[in-house]
Nucleic acid binder design. Structure first.
Lengths: 224, 224
DNA sequence: ATGATACTCGAACGCTTGTTCTGTGTCAAG
DNA sequence: CTTGACACAGAACAAGCGTTCGAGTATCAT
């Protein structure tokens, strides 16, 4: 007989994990203990429970005891753990950024992007995130291309070095720049060193619309 | 009493849909009929079942009868429809690209990224996608920064204008360039017009490792 | 040999949960 | 007013499902 002697994960553990993932993907809900047993050639529910307990101790699984099908994979992100971020519109030099209404429901929005929470940087899992599609090449000095999707977080506090979407009154446009606080105001630094920074005096109004937490670029289209 | 007279979706239907989505996001499994009733102020399980039936007829919900918590939203993409792409390593000038072994299991990989299928460009839903983390600034002329994650598709055929990962024998390095077929060979065009293209003669060997279908940049880190 | 450990089975128990049936009040059409 | 569709409530039933317990087998160290 095959023996494991409690050293880590065995073949049967893996088979169960794979089945749970597969079942969850197909049915959108976890399997029952008995279903796991059937598909993994385990005749007794207690044995499945036995393995499930071990997987839970290994930290690979979470269980809601007493709840039917109350299990979930916790490995990395068990599929299904993603944020629906509304695409509020386009960001373009000379145009203001549209602001999401308070009653906005991302689930009924026509334009949304789904972002896996595992990809979100510093646990920006707040629901107030929003996305903008970049239009034009005006942000090319910030390594952001035409058509890119930027995920933004409404700015409450901005730290030095973060990329922010700002409304520049003097230029009458919205752009993405790196933000730095200086002694006599603020410095908005393009990512490309070849471009000069924009200095904002303390007296001038500075509207920070949000800070960029992620950039997504799809490469399907042609390039001239 | 509030009456609806069977015209589409009512307030209570919406409340139930929202609760299911919310519950699913939090618990990773659907709620029970009784749980729906409690959180939607419905005292009878039969009434919940009554609404669930209607939602199913509207095509907004699917149900596995007789199965506990056997329901799923079918709206757009009810959370959970994403691809797990293995991160094979880093791409770096002077280093070869690691190739995924055939028995590679993305579910047990230590390093993966989850991409919503709704974000994938031209239905590149093949499971042979892989990801690389860019190291260094060598690809900065392709608008790809240090730390970016590029999603690649193994190249079988490459069309003009697509960005590909190529191994340059003469330079002994791997880079990302736009690909063009010319009369006497191939032209590898940097995204930045300030840089000159690299011409490859037909006689020279050209190893295309894959073409880029997506770029993801997290913005958590500081910038000098 | 002997005990400990790992693993497996089967069955019974009891809570969870979906289903169904009866009944009530409202409202519009006939 | 009667009728019927509609929106509910409550209770009871049956199946689904997690849990627990007793017992059996194989491997290994002592």
């Amino acid at each position: 007989m095959m023996v494991r002697k409690s050293k880590g994960i065995g073949e049967r553990h893996q088979k169960i994990l794979d089945f749970i993932a597969s079942y969850q993907r197909e049915h959108k809900h976890p399997p029952s203990i008995r279903e796991i047993g059937e598909h993994c050639d385990i005749s007794s529910t207690s044995v499945v429970n036995y393995y499930l307990d071990q997987l839970e101790k290994e930290g690979l699984l979470e269980r809601d005891r007493k709840i039917s099908r109350g299990m979930r994979l916790v490995n990395n992100s068990p599929l299904g753990d993603m944020l629906r971020v509304p695409v509020m519109g386009v960001i373009q030099a000379g145009e203001p950024i549209p602001i999401p209404p308070s009653d906005f429901n991302p689930f009924t929005a026509e334009d949304t992007v789904d972002i896996a929470t595992s990809l979100m940087p510093t646990k920006e899992k707040g629901k107030d995130l929003f996305a903008l599609q970049v239009q034009g090449d005006s942000m090319i000095d910030a390594m952001i291309n035409d058509g890119d999707i930027v995920i933004l977080k409404p700015a409450q506090e901005v730290r030095n070095g973060e990329m922010v979407a700002v409304w520049l009154d003097e230029r009458n446009e919205t752009t993405l720049k790196y933000f730095y606080k200086e002694k006599d105001g603020f410095r908005l630094q393009p990512a490309n060193p070849a471009y000069k920074p924009i200095m904002i005096k303390k007296t001038e109004p500075l509207q920070i619309k949000g800070k960029v937490v992620m950039v997504i670029r799809k490469m399907e289209r042609m390039v001239a």
